[in-house]
């Protein structure tokens, strides 16, 4: 919107990166939730026509694999196959609630857009998502708040049973060790018919780790958006 206010000369300057811009990015990520973990994060720089996901569209098989089990390998293959650049697992493992990783350096090369995903645990198929954010051509520090999305690929039964492979019902793990175990809950009936990527409705949980409907704890595992903060410094 602000570009409309720029004089013609500024538009010319903004167009220059299209013919050979290279941006050095310094990225930090913070988990804003009360009690959820993020699986290894994927950061991708790519062209305008590449998306790891799009809300309102069906998840790709590669996205489903990430959202249900945290595996980013197929998304990496897709991005790099399209000539994009990636940073994989910058926090060297899970990101606990409240934790940050900073100083993540990335050369976006000739790529114009930035995306970021990671699975939220413990959930069936929730992920944090940034979809094709146009990398600013003006040096500066930009703060982005990310929502939690539902991949729309798995019913949110809230049963922790170790299942992380695509198509398997259930939740791989509660890394904080604060969920019910081995499916003690009877399971939440997920009546959602939305099989497209959408804003996650949040988890229900209950307060009984040894029973109830859910293996999640409503006092620990609920969230409201945003769930992650990403600060990108364009040098």
């Amino acid at each position: 919107m602000a570009h409309k206010l720029l004089p013609a000369g500024a538009l010319l300057t903004a167009a220059l990166p299209l013919i050979g811009h290279s941006a050095e990015l310094d990225i930090s990520i913070t988990n804003l939730t009360h009690g959820n973990h993020f699986t290894p994060v994927l950061i991708a720089a790519h062209g305008a026509d590449v998306h790891l996901f799009q809300s309102g569209e069906m998840a790709t098989a590669a996205l489903q694999k990430m959202a249900e089990g945290g595996a980013i390998d197929e998304l990496v293959t897709q991005v790099e196959g399209a000539g994009g650049a990636t940073v994989q697992n910058p926090a060297a493992g899970l990101m606990a609630a409240g934790s940050s990783v900073s100083g993540v350096l990335m050369n976006s090369g000739s790529q114009t857009h930035l995306s970021l995903v990671a699975m939220v645990l413990p959930t069936n198929d929730a992920f944090i998502g940034l979809d094709a954010w146009p990398i600013p051509t003006e040096a500066g520090t930009y703060t982005l708040y990310l929502n939690a999305y539902d991949a729309g690929t798995e019913a949110n039964d809230e049963i922790i049973n170790g299942a992380g492979a695509p198509g398997q019902p259930g939740i791989p793990a509660a890394p904080g060790g604060n969920g019910g175990s081995n499916g003690n809950g009877t399971g939440v009936a997920d009546g959602s018919g939305n099989d497209k990527v959408h804003i996650h409705p949040g988890v229900l949980g209950d307060t009984d780790p040894n029973g109830g409907t859910s293996d999640l704890d409503s006092r620990i595992h609920r969230w409201l958006n945003p769930v992650a903060r990403v600060v990108v410094t364009v040098k």
Partner: peptide, 15 residues
């Protein structure tokens, strides 16, 4: 630690 509020549960939602 300060974080984004997870929302309240309420007696109506099982707490």
């Amino acid at each position: 630690r300060v974080h984004v509020h997870p929302g309240v549960i309420s007696q109506d939602d099982g707490l």
